[in-house]
Amino acid sequence: MLAARLPKRVPRLPPPVRRIHSSPCRRSDALFVHRDTTYNNPKIPFEFTSENMKRAQEIISHYPPQYKKAAVIPLLDLGQRQNKGWTSISVMNYVAKLLEMPPMRVYEVATFYTMFNREPIGENFVQICTTTPCMLRGAYDIVDTVCNHFGGIKPGDTTKDGKFTVIEVECQGACSNAPMMAVNDDFYEDLTAETTKKVLEAFAKGQKPKPGPQSGRHTSENSAGLTALASKPYGPGEFCTPEFQ
């Protein structure tokens, strides 16, 4: 197989099928069948660390013992976090074994939800929202900025140094701070081309910039300042008749 000759750390394998989409395939739904590769095959062992195992047991204990299978999504997430941000076939098999369900039932879940990455990703996972509110606030400029910043990669690609993976995603629920992107678990909002670059540069240096709005806003308050309730709220007793003061 072709994959056997490639170096172990493969940033992005071309999917073995002919592309029929006009837009590039995104990572998580690139292929709905598993192909054994050097970096992703059932022979690679996976096991929860003892700390994760404790958390897994805690999650499983939330459900009736015969319905252990209900814990499949949190456990896959736990596995994905432990496995450098992606869910390999070994992670799925391990979760299936742990929950005593047929592996296929786990594969069904893992392929259904796009946030389970079934291919390796870079150290930092940049997800740029391009759903309508963000798009109206210039999300595609952010996409272009990010892609150009990484030397002209396309959404879905990983940088050559393996530090960043960029994808477009649908609404992340931070519309009031559009445009936004999520890097790993944190939201970076109110982006402009400059702040985006700043955030990415910080990540490239291994720092973690402050999540949240990058425009100086605190949360999602009006960026033009308050238009109502601008004055100081009066305290208790103010404006009362003296006997109540």
Binding site: Q66, Y67, K69, M101, P102, M104, R105, E108
Partner: peptide, 12 residues
């Protein structure tokens, strides 16, 4: 709801 050990894991 089945009170005992499940004998089949249902799917779609």
């Amino acid at each position: 709801y089945r009170p005992n050990k499940l004998r089949i894991i249902r799917t779609k």
